[in-house]
Design a protein around this nucleic acid. Structure first.
Lengths: 319, 319
DNA sequence: AGCTACCGTGTAACTAGTTACATGAAACTA
DNA sequence: TAGTTTCATGTAACTAGTTACACGGTAGCT
């Protein structure tokens, strides 16, 4: 039950702990000694304690990731990108899901700080920013994803451009009356709707009709209210795609003839279902976020990605 | 840049580090002293080093989770269950994705060991079992998910029952010639097919025709080969649901009239698409796995969950 | 008043490692 | 042969905490 320590290995090999440490970390040691130490470590099943190493180094090699919503495909691809870079630099990934609760977000940032993570990638509300800034001041690189608050590294999408891309596609498809289902109080959502509105107006189309929702269970009513006066439903968050789509198909509406449908974030089923989306490069965003953690730039870096349209016919076809 | 330590707080409050430690951990301290210490900690922005705590305790409070495939909905729900229990016991979760590569699986188990995780939840091939057993001997509770190897805790599905459930439903729907797309060399897959075969034969139906595939890109051809002689396609792994479904719809086949379709693991889009599935209680499995880590039973515990059928019409309707 | 009991606090040893410095022996140079 | 250099290794101090034990002071009891 008692763990094998470096001391046990040292005793077994007849050397000091300093020598064992040097063997393990590639210091200056005679070859014969090194061989003895390796053999002792092997036969005792020694597994070095990464925690102790970390306390001496001042921080651990772990990268912390705070995710608002594990079930959203965007965050999943983000994590895959992060994981890829983390694995390449031998950093474990510590994941915390906050279920979109602001109190948990702040608490998780604090917990990650106490774990002395090497860096932190945060998808959370503004509430957690001050905590993140405090960490950054203490030398822990923090990367904010999906927003770009001042003074912190950030990796985000050009949300206005995403909205404009939607508008352009809708105009191409000859859609005119656009209803929007959007998340409440989220800056990203606001920007996407702003871009959409601008894009439509620029093309001489009427302003979109917007409904704000908080949870999945409000979506059906929201969609219902939009159907009276619109020929297209746009969803500005990938999180609600399923609910909006269900609300439409449950009413027996076929795309694109009965209703047009356009949403955010690509996902595995979109291609089979023929749903057009404006996609974020989530995987690449994850990679860049993790690279910022690993590279620790001295000044705050703000990376903005451009969205892409993937037309699949759910709004009809363009020119 | 230099981190605030317990020593700084002690100096600021005019006490010893022992007293600060006692204040933080609820030892015996005078109220006036405690107040001074709290104030000092606050004003210095002290954040206790969880790593140091852990090295003294012999292990960290982190729960390690090794996942083969983050993109599969089963593992996502599993993680959500784990996370729920972990959060309730203030344990951070360290996640490692192995992308189904056996070498990475073993390496990740070793890495988690070095991080001195409090316990480990593993979804991996047999290759990693010996590593896991070594950890268990050292006092780290290891829970294997989806298999039940001897000598280790495990949380798994009654895979034979899953196959039988499929057979029963297919018989109910009047299906007779069943083609199966299954993953290669996986014990779970073999058991599910075995259950399906038994169930069909018991009901006087012909044996299913099986095709084994490794990756998504082999699926289309596999499905194509099954279509000649069968009226139903069954998929025994949730991972391949999208590919199999795409292979069917791409051929213009409609469910359930042109072809029957039945697969494993429930997922958000299944209900909209009307796909019938045999579901695993993934969330609950995650919860139980995490509880085993937290509770550390002295003898290996083997928990087997029962699958449930969710009929949605993609095979037609039963009696 | 004197004895015991208890409370609050500091000292120092402990966790499992790393590393600066000292030491000693062998090898090379003059 | 003496002096210097080099190499391998041990000693001990360090990381940031926790905790067993000792000690001093006050309060209660006889």
């Amino acid at each position: 039950m008692k763990r094998v320590t470096i001391g046990d290995v040292a005793a077994h090999a007849g050397v000091s702990t300093a020598t064992v440490s040097r063997v393990l970390n590639g210091g200056l040691v005679a070859e014969s000694t090194a061989a003895r130490v390796w053999e002792a470590a092997e036969s005792l099943g020694y597994s070095p304690n990464a925690l102790t190493r970390s306390i001496f180094a001042g921080r651990s090699s772990t990268i912390g990731v705070i995710i608002r919503d594990l079930s959203s495909p965007f965050y999943l691809d983000l994590i895959r990108g992060i994981d890829e870079v983390a694995a390449a630099s031998d950093s474990p990934v510590m994941l915390a899901n906050t279920y979109r609760r602001a109190d948990r977000e702040a608490a998780q940032v604090r917990a990650m700080d106490q774990q002395r993570v090497r860096g932190l990638i945060i998808t959370a509300d503004e509430t957690a920013d001050s905590q993140a800034r405090r960490m950054a001041e203490n030398g822990t690189p923090c990367v904010i994803v999906a927003r770009n608050p001042p003074g912190l590294h950030s990796v985000s999408l050009d949300d206005v451009a995403a909205g404009e891309l939607m508008a352009a596609h809708l105009a191409d498809c000859g859609r005119s009356r656009v209803g929007v289902v959007s998340g409440r109080n989220r800056p990203t959502q606001v920007k996407r709707v702003t871009g959409l509105r601008q894009g439509l107006v620029e093309r001489g189309l009427p302003e979109p009709e917007e409904v704000l929702v908080e949870n999945e269970d409000e979506v059906d009513a929201a969609v219902g209210s939009l159907l009276h006066r619109n020929d297209t439903v746009v969803c500005t968050t990938g999180r609600l795609t399923v609910s909006v789509h269900t609300a439409l198909t449950a009413r027996g509406l076929k795309m694109p003839d009965d209703i047009g449908f356009l949403t955010m974030d690509d996902f595995p089923w979109a291609s089979t279902l023929g749903i057009s989306v404006v996609a974020q490069p989530a995987y690449e965003m994850g990679r860049r976020a993790a690279e910022l953690v690993v590279e620790e730039p001295a000044v705050p870096v703000r990376i903005v990605f451009q969205p892409t349209l993937i037309a699949r016919g759910s709004c009809g076809s363009g020119t």
